[in-house]
Each structure stands twice: as C-alpha cells, then as structure tokens.
Design a protein around this nucleic acid. Structure first.
Lengths: 143, 143
DNA sequence: ACAAAAATGCAACTTCGTTGCAAGAATTTT
DNA sequence: AAAATTCTTGCAACGAAGTTGCATTTTTGT
C-alpha cells in the first residue's frame, strides 16, 4: 500500500472527507518521525493553505484521535501522530516524550511507559505527562 | 520576620531594586500555595500595574531563580515559587507538578522526586518534567 | 539631597489563534 | 453523470497574548 492510499484510509476510517489540505498535512506527519509545531506545518506545506485551514485541520485531527498534542516548556504546542489505539476523544498517549536540546526535535518514545508516581495522601492521579529533555540518539552519535 | 521584610530580603539577595510592582507580585506568590498564571497576577494585583510591567517582572524573577515556569497541557505558562536552592540560571525544580482538574490549581509537590525513566539506548536525559493531572487533596475530601 | 542607574508606563506593533460568512470542493442521492 | 446536499476552505475582521522603543518616573548609592 502506498502512502496516498494509506492517507485516504486513515481519513475515511475517521469519517473525514478527503481533501487536499488534510491529505497533505497527514502526509507530513507520516513522513516525519518527530513532532511538528503549527509553524512547521505552515512552512512544510509550502504555505499553500490558509492559516485558518491548518488550525482547523489540526484541531480536527486531534478530535479524531489521529494526532495528539505535546506540551512544551516554551509554550508552543506540538503535534504528533497517535498510535492506532487512539480513537476520537480517547487518547492512549501514556508514553514519554523526548525533546532533544541539540536538534530541537521532539519524538514520542512509544515503548517507554510512564513510571509510577507516588503522590501524597489524598491526591488522585488520572493522567501523567512526562517530558524528558536531553540529547537524542542521532545527535549523540553523529557529532 | 514579617512578610514585607521577607520580600525585601529576597529581592536584595537577588540584586534587584525594591519596587512596588516587584514587591506586590512577590507577595502574591508567597501568599499563594499553588502556581499562578500571568492572568491571575494581573487580576490579583488589582490591575494597578501595566501589563508590560507584569511580563517584565515575571521574566526577571524567572531569570533570577525566584520563580520557575510549569508547562501545561492547555498551553498556558504557570509560575511558581522556587525552593531556596534555586539560583540564577540554575533551577533545581526536579519535583512533580500536580494540576487539579476540579479546582484548576497547580501545585508543586516538592517532596515527590521525579521517578527514573528508562530511555532507549543512545538517549541521554538531562531534565525530566512530570505533570500529574487529577484531583487534589482538598477537592477530594471537601465534596 | 543629588546624580546615576534602573524600572515603569505608554504607544505601537507583531504573533497567535478564533469566528462569521460567502465561495468552493467533496460526497451523496437520484 | 449531473444535481442537490453537505462539508471544507479562504477571506476578512477581530481579540488575546506578548514584545519593543522611548520618555518619564522611581530607586539606589554616594
């Protein structure tokens, strides 16, 4: 199955009409290993789409569980592809996010589960977000 | 030592001139257990200061290590008092942050140390940020 | 109290994100 | 395959959030 087919399949599975902007933006995520910021998408899509369209597309993708957001220290929202288990409204993003200080990339460490956190008495945890800052594999080996 | 003296001491220790806005904003943090957003500060300070002054004061406090920022899922920056060990440029904020879904408060769990996260080979961790979402002590007991 | 240094407030500006609405594309129906 | 319907897009306008330059005021050190 080529990428065009894969894109159509993902969109149709989520009851979304197949449009140029959605296809292109989804393609960017499939090609990219790491996370993308809104600004990245506007640039990489060749500024062919309106700002508003990009906003709305990302919002739709988040709602449908195709991508998820990652909070960052510098207060920019990052978006990354979800694993297949994610459905509308139910994100299974209990994985660790890694931000490389060198290349700036943010990647999802899907296989690293979030460690247990012992809370003081009375506190009830419902969701734990872990963001690790450091140097990624590529930057460490290739310098 | 009363609070006014304490405020002056903190400012002077950080080589900052003692001004009305800095004193007032620092007072807000000392009175508050949890974290504050920029908007909270503008409101609580009685809108007596210019927006710009609040921005610059918070920025200065972060630089001096008096407060630190907390990334949140909804992409708003929160600020909270640092422990004494923090100095300019060197934040020792390796503690867990807790966001209550009910009251919206964010507090620093200073005594809860960040758990170890096992990373894939090649990855080097330098800082780990843990934000726990759930229901806080007060909201659980008082409903 | 005075001079030097620093902080504040104002205005203007940029960036980021949202909303309403008309025009355009995609989907469904016949 | 074309028409009708539904959904998406782009535009314009708007609002919130944050930044910068500069004149004025406040703080500090002597």
């Amino acid at each position: 199955m080529n990428m065009t087919q894969q894109i159509q399949q993902v969109l149709k599975r989520n009851l979304l009409s197949v449009t140029e902007s959605r296809s292109k933006i989804l393609e960017l995520f499939l090609q990219q290993n790491g996370a993308l910021a809104h600004a990245d998408i506007e640039k990489k899509s060749g500024s062919s789409f309106d700002r508003v369209t990009v906003y709305r597309t990302l919002q739709t993708f988040v709602e449908k569980g195709i991508i998820h957001t990652i909070p960052t220290a510098d207060n920019s929202i990052l978006y990354a592809l979800c694993k297949d288990e994610c459905t509308a409204g139910r994100h299974h993003d209990h994985h660790v996010h890694f931000v490389c200080q060198q290349c700036g990339n943010t990647i999802c460490l899907d296989d690293i589960t979030v460690p247990d956190v012992r809370l003081p008495g009375g506190y009830q945890a419902r969701h734990v977000e872990v963001v690790v800052n450091g140097v990624c594999k590529d930057c460490r080996t290739s310098h």
